[in-house]
Design a protein around this nucleic acid. Structure first.
Lengths: 143, 143
DNA sequence: ATTTGTGCAAATCGTTTGCATCTGA
DNA sequence: TCAGATGCAAACGATTTGCACAAAT
């Protein structure tokens, strides 16, 4: 939609953070810039920390963790449960699903609308569906 | 199918373990008895360890972890990715899906056959679908 | 000035592993 | 006997937290 990395996007990022009830600090702005710059992304704390270092954004790993969780709580990110002991965050907070390539730990969006789940049994009493996660796990086909 | 807990089930358990290439040791037999006694179950290492203690089956937590992983590798169990930092194992190794109640961390099977996923986009080149995991996350409906 | 955020390192949590001991075949 | 299993505690990797310092309003 909009470009990022210029003065405009800086104020956008600041706005976005403010709207989410988060102070637009240097590190949050920096991380937001990385996260929301190129469309939908999937990161772990470590990969994002790596990118930040590469981009000369000075943040500690702990702050990256904290920031990702804050962003998640603020609805700017979504957590994706793929495998125990590695937490993935997705900048696409919409209702969509994922391909997951087990061999290299890569996550790819399946756009909203295409994929459908049908035949869900009755939900246990007093409960309602909060969200449906579909993970299509891929492996090499040696074709 | 068959009852468990008697001499017959002991030999069944032993057979099952042997068939999987695992020595039928006291602790593996004990854990298998707990796991495969009442139909399909979902456990974590901690819950199973707790059950073992309660049943006076003397196993260390480390052995429970190791055993669960061996059972998984042997195809007796399946791992379910629900949330980072807690690994769930499912005694139902068939092709089925899950309800997950976030509020109390409880997992419920959705039997094979009912639920269907359609509209999966083309898989990236050289890849094939290994498995599809559907997790229907439930929350209280306050009805 | 006051409040909130950050860095660092230590603490924690779930999980794995090394090694001496024990046990099933 | 002897390979393979177990227990324990220490090691581990990912994540969180406590506290002194720094920055935003």
């Amino acid at each position: 939609m909009s470009g990022a990395g210029d003065a405009t996007s800086n104020s956008n990022a600041a706005e976005r953070l403010r709207a989410a009830g988060l102070r637009p600090t240097r590190q949050r702005m920096g991380l937001a810039a990385l996260l929301f710059r190129h469309g939908n992304r999937h990161v772990t704390a470590e990969t994002l920390h790596g990118e930040a270092r590469a981009a000369s954004i000075n943040v500690s790993l702990a702050t990256v963790y904290n920031t990702l969780n804050q962003f998640k709580e603020a609805g700017l990110l979504r957590e994706v449960a793929i495998e125990a002991s590695r937490t993935y965050f997705d900048t696409n907070t919409g209702n969509h699903h994922h391909f997951f390539v087990e061999t290299d730990g890569k996550l790819v969006d399946i756009p909203e609308g295409r994929l459908e789940v049908s035949g869900i049994p009755d939900v246990p009493g007093g409960m309602k569906i909060g969200r449906i996660d579909v993970i299509v796990r891929l492996e090499p086909s040696d074709t």
